[in-house]
Amino acid sequence: MRLSFPLFPEQASTLASKVDSLYFFSLAISAFFSVLIALVIFAFFIKFRRRRAGEVGAPIHGSLMLELVWSIIPFIIAMSLFVWGAIVYFDIVTVPGNATEYFATGKQWMWKFQHPEGQREINVLHIPVGETIKLKMTSEDVIHSFYIPAFRVKQDVLPGRYTTIWFEATKPGTYHLFCAEYCGSEHSLMGGSVVVMEPDEYQAWLDDAGPVASPEEIGAALFDQYICSTCHETDDSGRGPSLHGIYGKEARLADGRTVMRDDDYLRESILRPATHIVNGYPQIMPTFQGQINEVGVLQLISYIKSLGDSETPAAAAGDEAVAASNSVGTEE
């Protein structure tokens, strides 16, 4: 057991001090009112104690003036907290445009990470200090929650959809990473750490991990492995639409809706194609649910995103395309 113990968490991200200022403000207000109320009660309790049997209190019924005062003042304070809280919240949830994208998948009971250069880690995430980092996250099973107290950030990680979290570390060090949403037996062990490093150290760490394929490259390999390419060719001549340059553009669906092709759309299109059929195409694409795991889907999406409008994919396709597995092409 340690003798010294902290009362306040470390500040290690650009968001931390913003959250803490808000915390101290609301703490000051809470302390002020708690102490005030306790003191007044105590004073009244002593001053107006019963002095003789049969005594009654003064016949005071109320005062509209006072009621207004003690409704309006708390209201103003509460609203100022609301506004300040909303500002900080939008700072937390609005991902800066220059953020570098990492992947995180939660799974009972571990975190799997992939760096943009392709390095993979479990339960430990190495990041460079001073860089804006965004994690695209999903879960393979139940809901988890990605939480780094020193950064003051937290975001639930859901099965079946993507959520994002971002942060910029300000101080090298090793910080706790927790799963904050109860997820079963080993919930309290589903954590690890975030290691914040100086940029050159981080680079060295990346190099140490050896040359690896980037998510786009692995995605390209998967694209061949699961014979997506038999239907999706570089132009619209295949049985399915070309996937070139579709990311971020709207799709017209067979049922008349138009939807934005974002990450969640692509994920659904791969795992459960039947949920939205592109206008003008038959419903022949097989479902890949249960065959490609969430990490694979993220890599396929990276690959699709990397496909420019041109006929040649931006990333050189992974060469060692494995022979098609027998499960491909059959509906579950």
Binding site: L22, G85, Y89, I92, V153, K154
Partner: peptide, 28 residues
């Protein structure tokens, strides 16, 4: 009177939790 004191603390910390930017850190 104990109720008033403790409920006040409970209520004020509830307001803190309702403050979005703060709730992210202390939620769960």
């Amino acid at each position: 009177l104990g109720f008033i004191g403790l409920f006040t603390i409970g209520g004020l910390t509830g307001v803190m939790l309702g403050t979005m930017g703060l709730d992210v850190h202390v939620h769960d």
